[in-house]
Nucleic acid binder design. Structure first.
Length: 506
RNA sequence: GGGGGCGUAGCUCAGUCGGUAGAGCAACGGCCUUUUAAGCCGUGGGUCGAAGGUUCAAGUCCUUCCGCCCUCACCA
């Protein structure tokens, strides 16, 4: 009962070891065939390559290696498919071509990893086939694979046993190949703009750069608590102070918060900072990046996500936060404290003890965000809710900040970076006075010191890579773009030994 | 944390009004040299997520618990 993960009786899947397969391991050994040999014979050719050259290469000899599919047995002839990382193709085993192997043919079965040497040809119906002249078992599979036609559907089993999901549902692998290509293309984009890719600490002594509860850990030798980073922001801006001028980091951040279709406690963030730029520059960068991803990776600007279609051809509309606020709240002014308060109460989002700006922002999130399918830049946020953003030269109440919405989700956050050390220090100290558990408990004075040396005007960007991939790949849940999403661990228990297994069966 | 849904064979799923636990694929034993969800003959396989309760009788009804999914809340 492998997918009855919930039953409280220890390791859940050992029962899947198939007794007949264990016996076949013994038979193999008796016949002098290693079930888990160290060496792979020949040099396997990727199946995709074999198939691509079939017209000119028919009759040539190839080694291919991969996982064996279901066997179709005709007595003196057996067909199966073989799948490797690049694709799948048919192999044909004929008694007359495999006199030595033939008595052992039934020791090889679906799920085993094998290498096959043989001549590339076709069947009577034209199916490209390698007619084996050598068959070498590389790894015996002890568990029954999921059903050939439906694959593995049970979502919990798919996430917990992604290794099975990947080989039994080939389209899953495609999502992760897409992920790899998108990230490579992001790097190429920033590299070509002269950005330097950097790696900054993940263990922080003061969590900062975002508002979120951190994970706490402990360093034994120093005997101090450390925090897994909630954002790389403050370190990256130190590099701007240091004169690196254009830097980006793609890395994991950790937030000790809820899990949902849009949230995983660890996720991948892109952050970039560019000196002598402002948030307008950054909007151009985002458009350039998305345009490039569409052209070079997807081959289209039209994407489908959660039953809706989006066009990612730039430019994207820019809408002012204040205007959107009024638009979806009957013309109510963001700055009308009493009106906003009443509206929050009416919506049921009013919480006591919050600043007027935060109340207003809750109203914004309740009334405006559901309508932001995007792509759209929401620009010019009230400065009071943007502690790391620079105020507009024209209007000191407005911060030069934008958030990017796409697919109804907040995908990115960016601003003209606040580089006034006095202003920054005051804002940090206000945060510390606030007893909100998500605000830092300590001012990062070292970061303030960095600003005191002088940080050039800069535009910074943060994009949630996983959410971006959800939209680009059309997967509605963040778990489908994470190879190993966080699930509650199974109850620990004694894993039965194989001997126990056998005696259980008898 | 609230609400809703789900959990039955290795996998995918049925299971009516409470009345002996089902199918397809997979597995096991055979036959077959052109199949590709191969076909044909035969066989085995279940603590129905767990515990408790109601009942003559529970996969089915009730309670509690476990896990997963969706949703709301939360979420720079």
């Amino acid at each position: 009962m492998p997918t009855n993960f919930s039953q409280n009786r220890g390791y859940p899947v050992t029962k899947q070891i198939h007794p007949d397969r264990l016996k076949r391991v013994e038979t193999l050994k008796e016949r002098g065939i290693a079930p888990f040999p160290a060496r792979t014979p020949g040099e396997p050719t990727p199946i995709q390559e074999v198939l691509a050259g079939i017209e000119e290469n028919e009759g040539k000899i190839y080694w291919v290696a991969g996982r064996l599919g279901q066997v179709r047995d005709f007595g003196k002839l057996r067909f199966s498919h073989l799948r490797d990382r690049s694709g799948a193709m048919q192999i044909g085993l004929q008694r007359d071509k495999l006199p030595d192997f033939w008595p052992n043919r039934k020791l090889l079965e679906v799920g085993d990893i094998v290498a096959i040497q043989g001549e590339l040809g076709r069947t009577k119906k034209g199916e490209p086939t390698i007619w084996a002249t050598e068959v070498v078992l590389l790894t015996k599979s002890l568990r029954l694979p999921p059903e050939k036609w439906h694959g593995l559907k049970d979502v919990e089993a798919r996430y917990r046993m992604r290794y099975v999901d990947l080989f039994s549902n080939p389209e899953v692998r495609d999502s992760f190949i897409l992920r790899s290509r998108v990230i490579r293309e992001i790097r190429a984009y920033f590299d070509e703009l002269g950005y330097i890719e950097v790696e900054t600490p993940i263990l922080h002594s003061i969590p900062g750069g975002a508002l979120a509860r951190p994970f706490i850990t402990h360093h034994n030798t120093l005997d101090i608590d450390l925090y897994l980073r909630i954002a790389p922001e403050l370190y990256l801006k130190r590099l701007i102070v240091g004169g690196m001028e254009r830097v980006y980091e793609i890395g994991r951040v950790f937030r000790n918060e809820g899990i949902s279709t849009r949230h995983n406690p660890e996720f991948t963030m892109l952050e970039s900072y560019e000196a002598y730029a402002d948030y307008n520059t950054v909007m151009n960068r985002v458009e350039g990046l998305f345009d490039r991803l569409c052209k070079n990776v997807l081959g289209t600007h039209e994407i489908h996500f959660r039953e809706k279609t989006y066009n990612l051809k730039p430019p994207y509309p820019k809408k002012k936060y204040i205007d959107l606020f009024a638009e979806y709240n009957d013309g109510l002014s963001y700055f009308d404290e009493e009106g906003v308060r009443a509206r929050a109460k009416e919506l049921g989002v009013l919480k006591e003890g919050l600043s007027p700006e935060k109340i207003a922002n809750d109203v914004f999130e309740a009334t405006v965000e559901p309508h932001l399918d995007g792509p759209v830049f929401v620009i010019d946020y009230p400065k009071a809710i943007c502690p790391l953003s620079k105020a507009s030269d024209e209007d000191p109440k407005i911060a030069e900040r934008f958030e990017l919405f796409l697919g109804g989700m907040e995908l990115g956050n960016a601003f003209s970076e606040l580089n006034d050390p006095v202003d920054q220090e005051q804002r940090f100290e206000e945060q510390v006075r606030d007893k909100d558990p998500e605000t830092p408990g300590e001012v990062d004075y070292d970061y303030v010191a960095a600003l005191e040396y002088g940080m050039p005007p800069a535009g910074g960007l943060g994009i949630g890579i996983d959410r971006l991939l959800m939209v680009l790949s059309g997967n509605p849940s963040i778990r489908d773009v994470l190879l190993f999403p966080l699930l509650r661990p199974l109850p620990s228990g004694e894993e039965p030994t194989l001997e126990t297994e056998e005696s259980d069966k008898s």
